[in-house]
Nucleic acid binder design. Structure first.
Lengths: 325, 325
DNA sequence: CTGAAAGCGCTTACAG
DNA sequence: CTGAAAGCGCTTACAG
């Protein structure tokens, strides 16, 4: 049995397929009484529009892809969730692609765009293709400068870190540490470390930092080494929440109390590490980042002008593991 | 400028579009020399196949959807990641839909199937539509019986929980607690509680349980109340890792040591709560669950017979927060 | 306000 | 082993 198509609706309602199509797309020019009759027929026939016919014709799929290194990570997960909401509001579907640090998968996005499977994509990942390949592909990057003129959305990494460090300083901390996982590829995230370096240089403080390229899930070793090297810290700034949670857990196991014995602020304080996660943090406005990223991508897809660099402000959430109020 | 289509390849190579299509789909019947020439032309023209033409014709999209309540959660995230890998290996793309406890979004999946946007979907979520609606839609459910004959994939909730409880008992624990978040809708997850109930009845132990419908992120209150009600436990079984992590964190903050003062085993020990997460657990074989779910869905899509109920065995990971070895 | 027709880019029996 | 042709289901100028 053939599925019911726009033709069946046209025949049964007594109008042409063009008019049915106009009703489907909400075209204002259709007479009200016509619209009603057609809608009634659609209902009677349980007609549902086949998107592949439309996509073939219009050359737009209404699908975008999001590419993240991994999904089981608070920041990436929250970003994906926020992006999905943005996309859905605009009537778009979201294709998920996890790069798993696998370069091949990164190229797949470009292929999918050329295949007209997706209209564009957002990258929250390392990417090392050359300008030539990216040409003509609607792409937006998070936290990382891409070659060509791919727009960038990032948070205020430098300024927020600096502000957090100043907070420690203002409350008397002088032995201020910094621990973090260095990104494999240069990205805006490195501005967190740069802020620390500038800060200690300016205040003439000792360099108590550990900043290494460690894969996700291996943070424990990094943090253990860091805490062993610097057993007498007043305060620690952690470059992300996984590292911060490890600092917190290890220190508590060693009988330390926050903030009395040690202060801690983390970049990236997404909500779900464990329920009731108390760590003070620089909170990125992930929803806003997703919103800007999506609207920028839409501009690109519809060939409008767009902002090449978007730096989203953050909020400092304090009161539990640092002495600030 | 028009994009290059299969017609251009046909014209330039001197063959018909049918033959080009056969080369594209790897049809064996094409002569080697022909294939080579066409491949060369494809390369020269930088031709890329438009999937929407193919989808319209074949009525298959090669896309499936995964629907989870939220993505920022270790179990769901790992499952999605595993499923993506399965799908990709089979040449399928994965559409992500987060239900956010919003019933409307659940209906969208069905619509997308009817619209031919996706070939089928996997549900890891509550679902309350009636049998009629699900009819003819290729769907697989995780952890939850759906109306109609939607195949189910789940882990051995009852048996694994029982085994963990027996472990406590074997090491002398008698004040054994159970704490967990009760699913809003009846699901296989409730078998964990049932195992506890049966266990204490059989061993004639006191009921030290708390099992309530609490939303994700609100586990702290539940656990606090539980620990206050039962301050003198020997052992706790937590129905999921978010709850377990909260039990762990709160107990450590109160000076308890694991496993000396308190034993703890969790259902659902995914790796990333914090790096180095030490909690003993019933580990679900998420990869295998994803694999079975995907292959079952494929069977449905291609109208083959499939197993209606699939119970995947688990592994008990012990040695750190329980006294077992 | 509406219809007839062209065409988006592909695949697949069918015939040879 | 290959070609010509039909058709998947839609949208959109164009004409009236």
């Amino acid at each position: 049995m053939r599925e019911v198509s726009i033709k069946d609706v046209a025949t049964k309602s007594g109008y042409g397929v063009g008019t049915v199509s106009r009703v489907l797309s909400g075209d204002k020019s259709v007479k009200d009484s016509t619209r009603e009759k057609i809608l009634k027929t659609i209902d009677e026939l349980h007609y549902v529009r086949n998107v592949n016919g439309a996509r073939l014709r219009t050359k737009h799929s209404g699908v975008i892809a999001i590419m993240v290194p991994i999904i089981n990570h608070p920041f990436f997960a929250e970003f994906v969730e926020a992006l999905e909401e943005e996309a859905n509001q605009a009537g778009c579907s979201l294709l998920l692609i996890t790069s798993q640090m696998n370069k091949e998968k990164e190229g797949e996005i470009l292929l999918k765009i050329k295949q007209h499977e997706i209209d564009g994509a957002i990258f929250v990942t390392h990417y090392e293709h050359d300008e030539k390949e990216l040409e003509g592909c609607p792409l937006v990057s998070i936290d990382r400068h891409l070659p060509g003129n791919v727009p960038l959305v990032t948070s205020d990494n430098y300024g927020s870190t600096m502000k957090a460090l100043e907070t420690f300083y203002a409350h008397g901390a002088r032995r201020i540490g910094f621990v973090g996982t260095k990104p494999t590829v240069e990205s805006e995230v490195s501005q967190r470390k740069k802020a620390y370096d500038d800060f200690i240089a300016e205040k003439n403080l000792p360099d108590l930092s550990k900043w290494e390229d460690v894969s996700h899930g291996q943070e424990t070793k990094l943090v253990e080494a860091f805490l062993k090297e610097h057993p007498d810290l007043d305060a620690v700034f952690a470059s992300n929440i996984m590292v911060a949670a490890t600092v917190y857990a290890l220190s508590i196991q060693n009988g330390k109390r926050f903030p009395e014995d040690l202060e801690l602020i983390s970049y990236d304080g997404t909500s779900q590490i464990w329920s009731g996660n108390p760590i003070d943090c620089v909170r990125q406005d992930i929803r806003l980042m997703a919103k800007i990223a999506f609207s920028t991508l839409q501009d690109l897809i519809e060939e409008r002008e767009c902002q090449p660099i978007n730096i989203i402000p953050t909020t400092l959430i304090l009161g539990k593991t640092s002495k600030a109020k």
